[in-house]
Design a protein around this nucleic acid. Structure first.
Lengths: 121, 121
DNA sequence: ATATTTTATGAAAAGTTGCTCATATAATCA
DNA sequence: TGATTATATGAGCAACTTTTCATAAAATAT
């Protein structure tokens, strides 16, 4: 008892499958980065922001008005999205205009939307 | 002061854009469902499970061994994935075999992977 | 310079998630 | 029947997120 492997306390039923899964597995860093990307999209307010920015750039104040939340809250969410490179901004005087960082995000959201719409009754 | 609209305490700078965004906006329920789908994928262990199941079905014990976490933890995660219809199971005696519920999930993950790989330096 | 405006940020409160541990259930076996 | 095996589930806790509140910073105007 206490060997490194047996986190699973019942006999391993399909060693072959586990071996295969281990070989097909992604590197740890890759899984983490994917999870981060999904996390960025895993919040209704952030999704609303990303969805709105498809149509063109908007400033913090616009987004706050659209989502009906405080500017501070939007700003925090934008920081997260900026850090993860989903959005990018451009300053014009006092105003910061945010836009999507690239088209991939739009694609990802479209796929998710299609999937969630096709969900069973 | 106190009108319904001014959650945003600075003047609304681009009413046109807000109006446009409101028209293009998704229904609330739709945003929530999309967020749920993203949430389901927004965890490294759940992603590992989904990624592994691409190759074929596995039982709880297999997955626990693969991820090196407790069976209880895997079972909780599987329940979440089941509830959100990302996985489905089949009983054979005492053993429950889990598999992806449909091919959309695989597609979604592939898009995310591609995107996260193409991220800038 | 000072005041004003828009946005950013840090800290703490409020809310959510993911794990563990103990217990329950469902199928099988003796 | 009772015992065993594989999995499910509920409660509780630790870790993390999201919002709020107060304050700071950057650009502009006076």
């Amino acid at each position: 008892m206490g060997r490194r492997e047996d986190i699973c306390d019942c006999r391993i039923i399909h060693e072959e499958r586990i071996k295969a899964a281990r070989q097909g597995a992604l590197a740890n860093g890759e899984i983490e980065r994917m999870a981060e990307l999904f996390k960025a999209c895993a919040d209704a307010n952030r999704l609303r922001i990303l969805w709105a920015l498809r149509q063109g750039e908007m400033c913090v104040c616009d987004l706050a008005a659209l989502l009906e939340v405080s500017e501070s809250a939007v700003s925090h969410q934008l920081r997260l999205l900026r850090t993860l490179r989903l959005v990018r901004n451009r300053r014009e005087g006092v105003v910061l205009y945010y836009r999507l960082d690239d088209e991939h995000i739009e694609h990802l959201i479209q796929v998710a939307l299609t999937h969630s719409r096709e969900e069973r009754p």
